[in-house]
Amino acid sequence: MDRPKPNARKRLLANKLRRLREDAGLTQVEAGEPMRFNKNKMSRIELGHLPDYNGFLALLDRYGVIVSDYEEWVSQYDRAWEKGWWHAYGIDGRGYVSLEADADEVRTYQLGLIPGLLQTEAWMRAAFAGARDPLTGRRLENAVAVRLRRQTRLTDDPPLQLHAIIDESALRRPDLLPDEQCAQLEHIIDCAELPNVTVQVVPIYHGLHPGRDGSFTVLSYPRLAEPDIAYLEHGFGSLQFEKAKDVNAARLVFRHLADLAYDEPDSIRLIRQVIAET
């Protein structure tokens, strides 16, 4: 039976443990020997299946972490085992919400949808109702509540840094009433006025470009001193990329799309034009 995938916080802490071991010049076998952790157990630990508390402290000691620095490590360990606020809405800690909750910066490109952090409630409800697995009842209400709570990060202290690139086709969706469509576009303009939010639009006339392959997001964690993660959601699930070469590829595509897109003032002018045409 396969073990469930560890949540994002456990994986982030596991990556730090791996780097501690590498900095100490130890192999997995050498690192685990004093605790009688075999190579398989060490491998699982570094994938996010963290040991018990005493085993965790033993690893810190093995890697040369001084006792006066334990407090921060123990705080991260406790945090990794906590259930995030999203659990109350029936969402586990292994998906996008938990990744975003710990991020300081989000760079997202959306092909056919307005980014969730910029959606009005009416847009959310239309998007959830039109999904491959439409949400109704309590599931729908929970999904809306989670997305609305995520949006508070844009005005929290410290605020989440958001750079959103939107394909023009997402601005011209016929599945909302005209008033709702205009309200959504006005909401994007309002969000773009926040100092931590950048909005760009890729105009339709560019035709084929790398963004036509689909939407993706790059999440950054400078406060946690953790490497970026790339996230890709598709019609049948999602993928998370943590290897440097994959994340670098996502960053390169994002930069290319930012160069293709209108700058923010021209993007806002285009959005106002779409409002006038609606």
Rank of each mutant, 00 (worst) to 15 (best):
D92H: 06
A258L: 02
P174N: 06
E121D: 04
K41H: 13
A126S: 13
Y205G: 07
D167P: 04
L160G: 13
R272V: 00
D179P: 02
L148P: 05
A31E: 08
S169Y: 01
L219Y: 02
D78Q: 13
E100Q: 11
R132T: 12
E72G: 09
T27D: 06
I229D: 00
A225C: 03
C182E: 13
L148N: 02
A24L: 04
L176P: 12
T198H: 08
D104I: 00
R138I: 03
I165F: 12
C191Q: 13
L57W: 09
R94E: 15
W73H: 14
F216W: 10
N38W: 08
P34E: 07
R18Q: 10
L148R: 10
P34L: 05
S98K: 02
E30I: 00
V74H: 03
D157L: 06
L113E: 10
G48L: 10
L224T: 03
M124H: 02
L57N: 09
E30R: 09
E105F: 00
D133N: 03
G237S: 06
R223L: 00
L257S: 05
K41M: 14
E121W: 01
Y53H: 14
N15K: 05
D190N: 07
D175V: 14
W123V: 01
L135W: 03
L160E: 11
D78L: 11
A143I: 09
A249D: 12
V146P: 11
R79L: 15
G90D: 12
Q110L: 03
P174T: 13
D78H: 13
A244E: 08
Q76P: 02
L50H: 12
C191G: 06
T108E: 14
L60S: 12
A244S: 03
T155V: 15
L194D: 09
A127D: 06
V218M: 06
G84R: 07
E22W: 00
H209E: 05
L12D: 06
A250C: 11
H49R: 07
A230M: 03
D2R: 09
V97H: 05
V199D: 10
V146I: 14
L252S: 05
A8M: 08
L99T: 02
K41Q: 14
K39S: 13
M35V: 02
V253A: 07
V202I: 15
S68M: 06
R21T: 10
N38D: 15
A88M: 01
Y77E: 11
N40M: 10
I275G: 04
L194T: 10
Y53M: 12
Q181R: 15
A127V: 14
L47E: 15
H87G: 03
G90F: 07
R251I: 00
